[in-house]
Protein backbone atom coordinates (compact mmCIF):
# COMPACT_ATOMS: atom_id res chain seq x y z
CA UNK A 1 0.00 0.00 0.00
CA UNK A 2 1.13 3.54 -0.71
CA UNK A 3 0.84 5.24 2.62
CA UNK A 4 0.88 8.77 1.15
CA UNK A 5 -0.90 11.44 3.13
CA UNK A 6 -2.48 8.91 5.49
CA UNK A 7 0.75 9.02 7.46
CA UNK A 8 -0.17 12.54 8.50
CA UNK A 9 -3.81 11.60 8.98
CA UNK A 10 -2.96 8.65 11.19
CA UNK A 11 -0.74 10.81 13.41
CA UNK A 12 -3.42 13.46 13.71
CA UNK A 13 -5.93 10.76 14.57
CA UNK A 14 -3.70 9.48 17.37
CA UNK A 15 -3.23 13.05 18.58
CA UNK A 16 -6.95 13.81 18.54
CA UNK A 17 -8.07 10.62 20.27
CA UNK A 18 -5.16 10.67 22.69
CA UNK A 19 -5.82 14.32 23.54
CA UNK A 20 -9.46 13.59 24.08
CA UNK A 21 -8.67 10.73 26.44
CA UNK A 22 -6.12 12.83 28.28
CA UNK A 23 -8.69 15.50 28.99
CA UNK A 24 -11.64 13.23 29.75
CA UNK A 25 -9.86 10.40 31.57
CA UNK A 26 -6.41 11.33 32.82
CA UNK A 27 -7.15 14.85 34.09
CA UNK A 28 -10.34 13.99 36.03
CA UNK A 29 -8.52 11.03 37.57
CA UNK A 30 -6.22 13.45 39.45
CA UNK A 31 -9.25 15.20 40.92
CA UNK A 32 -11.03 11.98 41.77
CA UNK A 33 -7.91 10.49 43.37
CA UNK A 34 -7.81 13.34 45.85
CA UNK A 35 -11.34 12.82 47.07
CA UNK A 36 -11.49 11.94 50.75
CA UNK A 37 -14.07 9.38 51.86
CA UNK A 38 -16.89 10.90 53.92
CA UNK A 39 -18.64 9.18 56.80
CA UNK A 40 -21.38 8.22 54.34
CA UNK A 41 -18.84 6.54 52.06
CA UNK A 42 -17.21 4.64 54.93
CA UNK A 43 -20.58 3.36 56.14
CA UNK A 44 -21.70 2.48 52.63
CA UNK A 45 -18.59 0.59 51.57
CA UNK A 46 -18.50 -1.31 54.84
CA UNK A 47 -22.11 -2.53 54.64
CA UNK A 48 -22.01 -3.07 50.86
CA UNK A 49 -18.72 -4.93 50.84
CA UNK A 50 -16.42 -5.44 47.90
CA UNK A 51 -18.92 -5.82 45.07
CA UNK A 52 -22.69 -6.01 44.71
CA UNK A 53 -22.78 -6.66 40.97
CA UNK A 54 -21.34 -9.67 39.18
CA UNK A 55 -18.25 -11.17 40.81
CA UNK A 56 -16.66 -14.59 40.84
CA UNK A 57 -17.54 -14.96 44.52
CA UNK A 58 -21.20 -14.35 43.85
CA UNK A 59 -21.65 -15.15 40.15
CA UNK A 60 -25.43 -15.55 40.22
CA UNK A 61 -26.00 -12.52 42.46
CA UNK A 62 -27.64 -14.60 45.15
CA UNK A 63 -25.92 -12.89 48.08
CA UNK A 64 -22.98 -15.25 48.60
CA UNK A 65 -20.04 -14.01 50.69
CA UNK A 66 -21.58 -10.71 51.74
CA UNK A 67 -20.95 -8.74 54.92
CA UNK A 68 -23.76 -7.79 57.31
CA UNK A 69 -24.41 -4.65 59.29
CA UNK A 70 -25.42 -5.20 62.92
CA UNK A 71 -26.56 -3.08 65.83
CA UNK A 72 -24.82 -4.12 69.05
CA UNK A 73 -26.43 -3.35 72.40
CA UNK A 74 -24.12 -5.57 74.43
CA UNK A 75 -20.39 -5.93 74.39
CA UNK A 76 -19.70 -9.08 72.35
CA UNK A 77 -16.82 -10.11 74.63
CA UNK A 78 -18.23 -9.49 78.08
CA UNK A 79 -21.98 -9.48 77.33
CA UNK A 80 -22.33 -6.27 79.37
CA UNK A 81 -24.83 -3.63 78.10
CA UNK A 82 -23.18 -0.81 76.20
CA UNK A 83 -23.98 2.25 74.12
CA UNK A 84 -25.70 0.97 70.87
CA UNK A 85 -22.94 0.55 68.30
CA UNK A 86 -23.09 -0.19 64.58
CA UNK A 87 -20.64 -2.84 63.42
CA UNK A 88 -19.91 -4.38 60.04
CA UNK A 89 -19.23 -8.10 60.13
CA UNK A 90 -17.09 -9.88 57.55
CA UNK A 91 -17.17 -13.60 58.19
CA UNK A 92 -14.15 -15.65 57.21
CA UNK A 93 -13.74 -15.75 53.43
CA UNK A 94 -15.62 -12.53 52.70
CA UNK A 95 -13.65 -10.08 50.54
CA UNK A 96 -13.08 -6.69 52.17
CA UNK A 97 -14.26 -3.48 50.47
CA UNK A 98 -12.07 -1.20 48.36
CA UNK A 99 -11.05 1.04 51.24
CA UNK A 100 -9.59 -1.83 53.29
CA UNK A 101 -7.85 -3.50 50.34
CA UNK A 102 -6.54 -0.23 48.91
CA UNK A 103 -6.43 2.37 51.71
CA UNK A 104 -5.38 4.99 49.14
CA UNK A 105 -9.04 5.03 48.07
CA UNK A 106 -9.95 6.59 51.40
CA UNK A 107 -8.03 9.82 50.89
CA UNK A 108 -4.85 10.79 52.76
CA UNK A 109 -6.25 11.72 56.20
CA UNK A 110 -8.76 8.90 56.46
CA UNK A 111 -6.16 6.46 55.24
CA UNK A 112 -3.64 7.51 57.88
CA UNK A 113 -6.18 7.38 60.71
CA UNK A 114 -7.56 4.03 59.56
CA UNK A 115 -4.08 2.53 59.39
CA UNK A 116 -2.63 4.03 62.59
CA UNK A 117 -5.62 4.04 64.90
CA UNK A 118 -7.91 1.61 63.09
CA UNK A 119 -5.32 -1.10 62.34
CA UNK A 120 -7.13 -1.99 59.11
CA UNK A 121 -3.93 -3.43 57.65
CA UNK A 122 -4.15 -6.25 60.20
CA UNK A 123 -7.55 -7.47 58.97
CA UNK A 124 -7.39 -10.94 57.46
CA UNK A 125 -9.84 -12.39 54.97
CA UNK A 126 -9.09 -15.94 56.16
CA UNK A 127 -10.18 -15.15 59.71
CA UNK A 128 -12.81 -12.53 58.98
CA UNK A 129 -13.07 -9.18 60.74
CA UNK A 130 -15.43 -6.74 62.40
CA UNK A 131 -15.23 -3.05 61.46
CA UNK A 132 -16.53 0.14 63.03
CA UNK A 133 -16.70 3.73 61.77
CA UNK A 134 -15.33 6.18 64.34
CA UNK A 135 -14.54 9.92 64.48
CA UNK A 136 -11.30 11.31 65.86
CA UNK A 137 -11.18 14.49 67.98
CA UNK A 138 -11.49 16.72 64.88
CA UNK A 139 -14.51 14.71 63.60
CA UNK A 140 -12.53 12.97 60.88
CA UNK A 141 -14.22 9.63 60.40
CA UNK A 142 -12.09 6.54 59.88
CA UNK A 143 -12.43 2.76 59.83
CA UNK A 144 -11.51 0.74 62.90
CA UNK A 145 -10.75 -2.95 62.77
CA UNK A 146 -12.48 -4.03 66.00
CA UNK A 147 -11.08 -7.53 65.67
CA UNK A 148 -7.58 -6.10 66.08
CA UNK A 149 -8.33 -3.29 68.55
CA UNK A 150 -10.86 -5.00 70.82
CA UNK A 151 -10.72 -8.67 69.92
CA UNK A 152 -14.31 -8.81 68.61
CA UNK A 153 -14.68 -11.90 66.43
CA UNK A 154 -17.31 -12.12 63.68
CA UNK A 155 -19.02 -15.08 65.31
CA UNK A 156 -19.30 -13.44 68.73
CA UNK A 157 -20.63 -10.19 67.24
CA UNK A 158 -23.28 -11.98 65.15
CA UNK A 159 -24.37 -14.04 68.15
CA UNK A 160 -24.59 -11.04 70.45
CA UNK A 161 -26.53 -8.93 67.95
CA UNK A 162 -29.05 -11.63 67.04
CA UNK A 163 -31.10 -11.90 63.86
CA UNK A 164 -33.41 -8.98 64.72
CA UNK A 165 -30.50 -6.53 64.84
CA UNK A 166 -28.76 -7.88 61.73
CA UNK A 167 -29.19 -6.17 58.38
CA UNK A 168 -28.31 -8.09 55.21
CA UNK A 169 -27.90 -4.85 53.30
CA UNK A 170 -25.11 -6.03 50.95
CA UNK A 171 -27.13 -9.08 49.97
CA UNK A 172 -30.09 -6.72 49.56
CA UNK A 173 -28.19 -4.39 47.27
CA UNK A 174 -27.18 -7.43 45.21
CA UNK A 175 -30.87 -8.27 44.82
CA UNK A 176 -31.50 -4.61 43.95
CA UNK A 177 -28.94 -4.86 41.14
CA UNK A 178 -30.05 -8.32 39.97
CA UNK A 179 -33.74 -7.48 39.85
CA UNK A 180 -33.10 -4.22 38.01
CA UNK A 181 -34.77 -1.97 40.59
CA UNK A 182 -32.35 0.72 39.44
CA UNK A 183 -33.90 0.82 35.95
CA UNK A 184 -36.68 2.90 37.51
CA UNK A 185 -35.51 4.00 40.97
CA UNK A 186 -32.50 6.32 40.85
CA UNK A 187 -30.01 6.59 43.72
CA UNK A 188 -29.08 10.17 42.88
CA UNK A 189 -31.20 13.11 44.07
CA UNK A 190 -30.31 15.88 41.66
CA UNK A 191 -28.37 18.92 42.77
CA UNK A 192 -30.86 21.30 41.21
CA UNK A 193 -34.27 20.49 42.64
CA UNK A 194 -34.77 17.21 44.46
CA UNK A 195 -34.01 18.41 47.99
CA UNK A 196 -37.55 18.83 49.26
CA UNK A 197 -38.93 15.42 48.37
CA UNK A 198 -36.00 13.08 47.87
CA UNK A 199 -33.49 14.67 50.23
CA UNK A 200 -29.98 16.02 49.91
CA UNK A 201 -27.97 15.16 46.80
CA UNK A 202 -24.82 13.15 47.50
CA UNK A 203 -21.47 14.86 48.14
CA UNK A 204 -18.21 14.34 46.28
CA UNK A 205 -16.74 11.82 48.74
CA UNK A 206 -19.90 9.80 49.33
CA UNK A 207 -19.10 7.05 46.84
CA UNK A 208 -15.52 5.99 47.61
CA UNK A 209 -15.29 2.22 47.48
CA UNK A 210 -18.81 1.65 46.16
CA UNK A 211 -19.29 -0.75 43.23
CA UNK A 212 -21.53 -0.55 41.34
CA UNK A 213 -22.82 2.93 42.13
CA UNK A 214 -26.04 2.19 40.21
CA UNK A 215 -27.13 5.83 40.02
CA UNK A 216 -29.75 4.96 37.43
CA UNK A 217 -30.56 7.28 34.54
CA UNK A 218 -34.23 6.80 33.73
CA UNK A 219 -36.36 7.78 36.69
CA UNK A 220 -39.77 6.20 36.38
CA UNK A 221 -40.23 5.99 40.14
CA UNK A 222 -39.15 7.85 43.28
CA UNK A 223 -35.48 8.32 44.06
CA UNK A 224 -34.38 5.95 46.81
CA UNK A 225 -31.12 7.38 48.16
CA UNK A 226 -32.79 8.48 51.40
CA UNK A 227 -35.90 6.31 51.30
CA UNK A 228 -35.22 4.82 54.73
CA UNK A 229 -35.64 8.27 56.24
CA UNK A 230 -38.99 8.82 54.59
CA UNK A 231 -40.51 5.43 55.29
CA UNK A 232 -39.03 2.93 57.72
CA UNK A 233 -41.99 0.56 58.05
CA UNK A 234 -41.06 -3.06 57.37
CA UNK A 235 -44.75 -3.95 57.24
CA UNK A 236 -45.38 -1.40 54.46
CA UNK A 237 -42.31 -2.56 52.55
CA UNK A 238 -43.47 -6.17 52.80
CA UNK A 239 -46.92 -5.42 51.37
CA UNK A 240 -45.43 -3.13 48.73
CA UNK A 241 -42.90 -5.68 47.47
CA UNK A 242 -45.44 -8.51 47.38
CA UNK A 243 -47.87 -6.47 45.33
CA UNK A 244 -47.43 -2.70 45.11
CA UNK A 245 -51.10 -2.25 44.25
CA UNK A 246 -51.99 -3.34 47.81
CA UNK A 247 -50.68 -0.07 49.24
CA UNK A 248 -50.62 2.18 46.15
CA UNK A 249 -53.41 1.35 43.69
CA UNK A 250 -51.88 3.42 40.86
CA UNK A 251 -48.34 2.08 41.13
CA UNK A 252 -46.78 0.59 37.99
CA UNK A 253 -44.07 -1.29 39.93
CA UNK A 254 -43.88 -5.01 39.15
CA UNK A 255 -44.85 -7.52 41.81
CA UNK A 256 -41.83 -9.02 43.54
CA UNK A 257 -43.71 -11.83 45.26
CA UNK A 258 -41.27 -14.35 43.83
CA UNK A 259 -38.58 -12.99 46.11
CA UNK A 260 -40.38 -14.69 49.01
CA UNK A 261 -39.13 -18.04 47.73
CA UNK A 262 -41.02 -21.29 48.24
CA UNK A 263 -41.80 -21.02 51.96
CA UNK A 264 -42.94 -18.39 54.45
CA UNK A 265 -41.52 -17.49 57.88
CA UNK A 266 -43.05 -20.59 59.50
CA UNK A 267 -41.58 -22.85 56.84
CA UNK A 268 -44.95 -23.50 55.22
CA UNK A 269 -45.27 -23.64 51.45
CA UNK A 270 -46.62 -20.41 49.95
CA UNK A 271 -49.55 -21.05 47.62
CA UNK A 272 -49.08 -18.30 45.04
CA UNK A 273 -51.85 -19.51 42.74
CA UNK A 274 -54.37 -19.36 45.55
CA UNK A 275 -53.17 -15.89 46.55
CA UNK A 276 -53.41 -14.54 43.02
CA UNK A 277 -56.86 -16.03 42.52
CA UNK A 278 -58.09 -14.45 45.76
CA UNK A 279 -56.47 -11.15 44.87
CA UNK A 280 -58.24 -11.16 41.51
CA UNK A 281 -61.55 -11.75 43.32
CA UNK A 282 -60.72 -8.81 45.57
CA UNK A 283 -59.98 -6.62 42.55
CA UNK A 284 -63.28 -7.60 40.98
CA UNK A 285 -65.12 -6.70 44.16
CA UNK A 286 -65.99 -10.27 45.13
CA UNK A 287 -63.98 -10.04 48.36
CA UNK A 288 -64.01 -7.29 50.92
CA UNK A 289 -60.33 -7.54 51.87
CA UNK A 290 -57.22 -8.50 49.99
CA UNK A 291 -55.71 -11.86 50.91
CA UNK A 292 -53.10 -11.88 53.69
CA UNK A 293 -49.51 -11.37 52.52
CA UNK A 294 -47.33 -14.24 53.78
CA UNK A 295 -44.58 -13.21 56.19
CA UNK A 296 -41.16 -13.76 54.64
CA UNK A 297 -38.55 -16.21 55.83
CA UNK A 298 -35.50 -14.63 57.48
CA UNK A 299 -33.19 -16.01 54.77
CA UNK A 300 -35.35 -14.94 51.81
CA UNK A 301 -34.27 -12.48 49.12
CA UNK A 302 -36.98 -10.04 50.12
CA UNK A 303 -35.75 -9.84 53.71
CA UNK A 304 -32.35 -8.75 52.43
CA UNK A 305 -33.93 -6.30 50.01
CA UNK A 306 -35.99 -4.70 52.78
CA UNK A 307 -32.88 -4.52 54.98
CA UNK A 308 -31.09 -2.72 52.14
CA UNK A 309 -33.92 -0.27 51.49
CA UNK A 310 -34.17 0.60 55.18
CA UNK A 311 -30.40 1.13 55.28
CA UNK A 312 -30.75 3.99 52.78
CA UNK A 313 -31.09 6.81 55.27
Amino acid sequence: MKFREYKIGARFFALALGGSMTITLLMPSFDMNNVSATEVALDKQLWAGHETGFSLEDPFLTGQHKPVKVLLKNDPKTGQPMEPTTAYVYEAGTTFPGGILHPDNLGATVKQLSLDRGHIAEASKAQGAVFLVKPDEQKHYYIENATATMGWTPDAVLKTAGDANTQHAAYGKTVFVREGCWWCHTLLPEQTQDWQVFGAPPMLGDFNGESPTAFGSDRKAPDLLHVGSRNSSKEWMMLHFFNPRLVQPHSIMPRFDYLWGPVDAKGQKIDYDKWRAEYNEYREGKRVTAPEVPTYASNSDVRALIDFVLTLK
Binding site: Q45, F207, N208, G209, E210, T213
Partner: peptide, 19 residues
Amino acid sequence: VGNLPEFFHLTGLTEAYLT
Protein backbone atom coordinates in the same frame (compact mmCIF):
# COMPACT_ATOMS: atom_id res chain seq x y z
CA VAL B 1 -11.08 1.38 28.61
CA GLY B 2 -14.79 1.73 29.41
CA ASN B 3 -14.83 -1.62 31.18
CA LEU B 4 -11.72 -0.99 33.28
CA PRO B 5 -13.88 -0.70 36.43
CA GLU B 6 -14.85 -4.34 35.94
CA PHE B 7 -11.39 -5.62 35.02
CA PHE B 8 -9.60 -3.82 37.87
CA HIS B 9 -12.48 -3.21 40.26
CA LEU B 10 -12.40 0.58 40.15
CA THR B 11 -15.03 1.97 42.48
CA GLY B 12 -17.04 5.01 43.46
CA LEU B 13 -17.16 8.11 41.31
CA THR B 14 -14.53 6.69 38.95
CA GLU B 15 -16.77 3.71 38.27
CA ALA B 16 -19.81 5.92 37.71
CA TYR B 17 -17.91 8.22 35.38
CA LEU B 18 -16.34 5.42 33.35
CA THR B 19 -19.74 3.79 32.99
